[in-house]
Write a protein that binds this DNA or RNA. Structure first.
Lengths: 90, 90
DNA sequence: TTGACCCATCAGCCGCTGCTGACATATCCT
DNA sequence: AGGATATGTCAGCAGCGGCTGATGGGTCAA
């Protein structure tokens, strides 16, 4: 229950919500989020750090271009978050 | 999508989350929420006003004791909120 | 190696939000 | 009518959280 509240507080931000929605169709780098959101890289990086601390996303370096930090969703954690929110509204 | 963010922001508060969870098993009055949360009536009333403005709950007067304002969930709206959050994490 | 690029971290500021205290309103009881 | 109970509303305050600017690290190309 407290977990569901924390997840809801994370999603209750448009930037983080769109980040999670963008990650539905595969990994993206920080700069892509920044251009899509109209925000700066450090701001996006802060949001991603929150999501990463919550275990919802992982970060890996791109194999071709090592300067790019690619983020992908932890599908198991996202699915657990979905069920937690769903049971909260049961 | 913006709707899901608004709902998530509402649920991202422990008081409102527990209120919605308590409303799963039937209507309750403001004083019951206040004692369960350890909060004051005006504070709970403020949270209920938010939930009411979002269309998630309705308020009706008790037929026996008209001083009591009973709150119940709008099941259709709650179900819509559940699906909105679920599709956001799809 | 030097520079450019991409990202992370930190301190600081500012706006939003929840809580509180005071007051108003509505209903019931005597 | 008058008091008690239950709830709503409002201004004010304190704390949290997001955005920014600056700085540093890590990677690649020339």
């Amino acid at each position: 229950m407290s977990r569901a509240v924390d997840v809801a507080r994370l999603i209750g931000d448009r930037s983080r919500a769109t980040i999670l929605a963008m990650l539905a169709d595969g990994p993206h780098c920080v700069c892509e989020f920044a251009t899509a959101l109209g925000a700066r890289e450090n701001n996006v990086s802060n949001h991603l750090a929150r999501l990463r601390q919550a275990g919802l996303v992982r970060s890996t370096r791109h194999e071709a271009n090592g300067r790019l930090q690619y983020y992908e969703r932890d599908e198991a954690a996202v699915e657990a978050a979905r069920t937690a929110l769903s049971t909260l509204l049961r």
